[in-house]
Design a protein around this nucleic acid. Structure first.
Lengths: 341, 341
DNA sequence: CAAATAATTTTACGCGCGTAAACAAATTCC
DNA sequence: GGAATTTGTTTACGCGCGTAAAATTATTTG
């Protein structure tokens, strides 16, 4: 136990019988000191339970050991899952992840960017709001801080990691067309480039099959996708405006709202007999398994997106080289067949 | 625009024609300097876009302006919502919120606590993991940092803010018993004190009505409540072990899993004719509105819990007085009637 | 308008640590 | 076992800012 309070590195160096600069070196990289020295420090560490002051460290280092993570909406389980994985990887790599959420608001995104900027982080992993992002502000940020974007491909930063919407949407359009009436497409609110890409992917996939695409746009700009799906669904069903009995929603949250609408209107969703509607989504959100009926969807590869984002960032950070070009990586999804379609 | 890069306060004081200590004073409290001085600083601020270095600030202040927020599971929409509100309030009050999530793991909770500790925050708002929390570690933390607990009432810190499980469970037990067969109770995994409290609340409420309580416990210790609800639900339904056709789950996520089980087993959930089962939850999670059928539940007052937690903390922080006793505040919920029960 | 009060400037120090340079000691090599 | 090499120590400075005390200036009061 701590037989004495250790206020700073000076004192800690004293009680462990090592000079302060060497102790400092140890904390920056334990393997950079001699084995015997390392042991003595670690014994003292057991005994006195001292930790260097983070603020003092970061003030003096040229490059801090912090990594900024910024997501548009932490309440979205997709981001919650990704963040969890990213945080873990950062910690394992000896970095200190700091999480910000824009909560769907441009103002908060800018705030986070400013705060992050003044933290002088080693790097940043950003999933931008998208359409409502302040591009200029983000560029200014990325000029000083190595930045990897994910999920939403704004043309900012050193690299992008996301999912291959053309592959994944193609997959599910094929499946739906093969097993029943070809799907119409209910768009998510146009909050980011994925919205547009998925729509285009749907169009191409349909045309490739020689089918006529039917796209249903939603005007409202909201992150509350379930509500959007519900309201649009109610409108479409009650006014008999659905061009197909198969509905592909551009993400799971939208699909869940849509299914709620179908339920409310007395339409049974599924692919069995007695079902009036098939509904499918995209992303395989953690709770899609638990809807009634369980949602057929395409999974995004959470782990690989998270891992590759972090690896890419650390690659840039640790070599110190800003990559040339701007590598974009897209991971494919896999079909997740459940009861809804 | 920035006609010149301002590296530090010294330079900024120079270009704005004010002495550095006064500028420093301004950043600590803009209203503490003369109006005319304030204007000159703010004009310079427009022109040069300078921000004090956060690390240097926090190194020197006795009390930093950071506030730690620690939740057990950020992917849970309850916490995501609470956090959103807490963050906003902190920012408005001039504090800098730092978010940590334990992701259900004791090790990560301790890590977060350690990191937070070394940050010397002005205060902390903590929703502990509960049963698996390292109480001793948390006490050590709370000894140095003013800490307000919420959601899960471990006997640590200066105060607690949460919901009144007895009131809310009472409410829904009354409702369910009045409108149909009295409910049995499916427990959430015993991860925290709320689990136990809700069970007791159910028991009391039933006995008060002169009814026999039926409690179904789940053994597994998991934060993936939906899956727990699904598995337990399947077991109970398929083995005909349900003591009542009305099921009260101790939270919404569990209820959603349970409804998925009912669906899978071909049991229709709801209160209309042709329905075999009524299912209700607790919390009014953001997505409970969108289940099929929409979930009947009791809402927790997100806003008031968040606000009161922050107010309590700032009350302690700003007076500098650790409150005597350990005030506990419980907010009541309101019944949210939907189709599931 | 002089005195009292408030706000600002000057000066100076300290926070806890990174880091560079010169030197000393320990380790490795032949 | 002496030279070359690695590893540590000493010494010294700087980072960007908070903050205290004393001196100065501006504002308010009677």
């Amino acid at each position: 136990m701590a037989s004495q309070r250790i206020p700073n590195m000076e004192k800690f160096a004293e009680v462990s019988g090592i000079s302060r600069p060497t102790v400092s070196k140890y904390f920056n990289d334990p393997s950079s000191v001699r084995q015997s020295t390392r042991q003595r420090i670690e014994e003292a560490l057991e005994k006195y339970d001292y930790r260097p002051n983070i603020f003092a460290i970061n003030q003096n280092r040229r490059m801090t050991k912090t990594v900024g993570i910024l997501v548009p909406y932490i309440a979205d389980p997709f981001f919650a899952e990704i963040v969890r994985r990213i945080e873990r990887k950062c910690i394992d790599a000896g970095y200190w992840p700091i999480l910000f959420s824009s909560h769907g608001q441009t103002e908060l995104e800018n705030n986070a960017l400013e705060t992050l900027h003044s933290l002088k982080p080693a790097g940043a992993l950003i999933a931008p709001l998208g359409r409502t992002s302040d591009l200029e502000r983000m560029r200014r940020f990325a000029k000083d801080v190595p930045t990897v974007l994910f999920d939403s491909n704004l043309k900012v930063g050193e690299a992008f990691v996301g999912s291959d919407n053309f592959q994944s949407i193609g997959l599910i359009v094929d499946y739906l067309s093969r097993t029943g009436e070809p799907p119409c497409f209910v768009e998510m609110p146009p909050v980011n480039p994925n919205a547009r890409k998925r729509r285009e992917a749907y169009r191409q996939a349909m045309e490739k099959l020689g089918l006529t695409p039917h796209i249903i746009s939603v005007g409202r700009h909201s992150w509350e996708f379930e509500r959007v799906g519900l309201i649009e669904g109610k409108r479409l069903i009650s006014q008999h405006k659905l061009p197909s009995s198969t509905v592909l929603c551009s993400n799971d949250r939208l699909a869940i709202g849509f299914m709620a609408a179908a339920f409310e209107q007395g339409l049974r969703v599924g692919r069995g007999t007695g079902c009036a509607l098939r509904v499918a989504g995209h992303d395989d959100h953690p709770w899609s398994r638990f809807s009634s009926p369980p949602l057929t969807t395409v999974s995004q590869d959470y782990s690989r997106i998270a891992e590759h984002s972090v690896d890419t960032l650390f690659g840039i950070v640790e070599t110190g080289e800003r990559s040339e070009g701007r590598p974009e990586t897209f991971f494919g999804g896999t079909l997740v067949m459940r009861e809804s379609a």
